[in-house]
Design a protein around this nucleic acid. Structure first.
Lengths: 221, 221
DNA sequence: TAGATTGTTAATCGATTAACAATC
DNA sequence: TAGATTGTTAATCGATTAACAATC
């Protein structure tokens, strides 16, 4: 079913982190960096950094290290940030509107073309220069326009159906904010932002010590 | 530095997923489930599910499987969802307001007590029944109130300093939306929602095939 | 050239899967 | 009791770390 990536998920998850740190280094005027130094900054081993980078090719120089802005640029390419993406937002609730208002994405090549919602209270409002359209218009929009990415921020009960519509309409990537694990055909990329999962992981970590204290105590008796 | 968890991160990340699926099963009226069936639903092996659950104790019954609502309840406990959390939101921009408006958290024991922002345009507005206070009031609020969790949704340049203030004020958990890897003392839990990282992972996946086609082609010559 | 640091292979560690005895 | 399925130990697989030859 799922397309087998050539690069492990663990590596892929670290790529944006490299990108962030390299951007900051560049802004700070740092020209070159060794895997050792970068590792100290990022709390990774030098070895892991070299392994990660070499999944995509040798971008360093022996005896010198890595040229910061060169490496940043290569990682930008790897992340697909040298493309332009037409984005639509499906679901104009709190999260959909927050994403629309987040200006940061625009300059990185993600431009919001349209927004959709079922609620008559939201249809017609302007969010960051984009008009919210009624959900019935979604399919015809997909027919008439090329859409690369859809932000899926509808209630969970509608998430899978909406995703199916999006896929039929030619969307290649879904940024999913619904607390659901979508089933999608191969060739359609997805990444989840499961906010409540994230909050639950936080509360887990806040309680782990007490939890195991209780478990250990129970084992004694 | 970092507290060494007794449970691997891989397992912890799956816990909220178990919780979600068990809630749905319970809602659908399913009373018992085997690790086999649950695995098919969640795309995990039966073995992995049993291993995961047994990090915390044996909640199943041989020959029967797991009692759905019992297991769901045990995982709720493990996740710390049987506690009440006093939450404040620091940074009332798009994300801070979206979190405040998200009602789902409230019924799970996370109640928003206060919001703070530097912007005079935001100070004084009501977000989901909570008044936005000026950032200068943050420290005195922390002195006067017990705060368990802070939602950190300030611009990245202020994130670490604000986090330091929160820690000094006794906050035990930080839900970090700033695109920064915070440095925190042991005993303070953190979980990140790095939205732009997530979007970048999506665009990576959308382009991976082409990327390696290009890399492979380059190797030929 | 000598020193530094990469790219890459080998060793280790940890997570996942398989197997099976325990037991409901 | 017999059948089913867990809890748990052992085997496998993959990711991380260490080591070092290649080379700038």
């Amino acid at each position: 079913m799922a397309y087998k990536s050539r690069v492990s998920d663990a590596v892929v998850r670290r790529l944006p982190m490299y990108y962030r740190h390299l951007k900051e280094l560049e802004k700070a005027g740092v020209v070159r960096i060794s895997s050792q130094e970068l590792g100290e900054r990022m709390n990774l081993t030098a070895s892991q950094i070299r392994q990660d980078i070499n999944c995509f090719g040798g971008f360093g120089q022996q005896g010198y290290g890595y040229h910061v802005s060169n490496l940043r640029e290569r990682i930008a390419e790897i992340l697909g940030l040298r493309h332009q993406y037409h984005v639509i937002i499906v679901g104009a609730g709190n999260i959909g509107r927050a994403v629309a208002n987040y200006a940061g994405f625009t300059k990185e090549g993600f431009s919001v073309q349209a927004m959709f919602d079922v609620s008559p209270a939201l249809v017609g409002i302007d969010v960051h220069g984009v008009l919210v359209q009624p959900m019935e218009k979604l399919e015809s929009w997909l027919e008439a326009h090329q859409v690369d990415i859809a932000v899926l921020s509808v209630p969970k009960a509608y998430a899978q159906d909406t995703a199916d519509t999006l896929v039929r309409g030619g969307v290649r990537g879904i940024w999913n904010f619904a607390p659901v694990d979508l089933v999608l055909p191969e060739g359609v990329a997805v990444n989840n932002v499961h906010l409540s999962d994230s909050l639950h992981i936080l509360s887990y970590r806040m309680n782990e010590k007490d939890l195991f204290a209780a478990i250990d105590a129970a084992k004694q008796s």
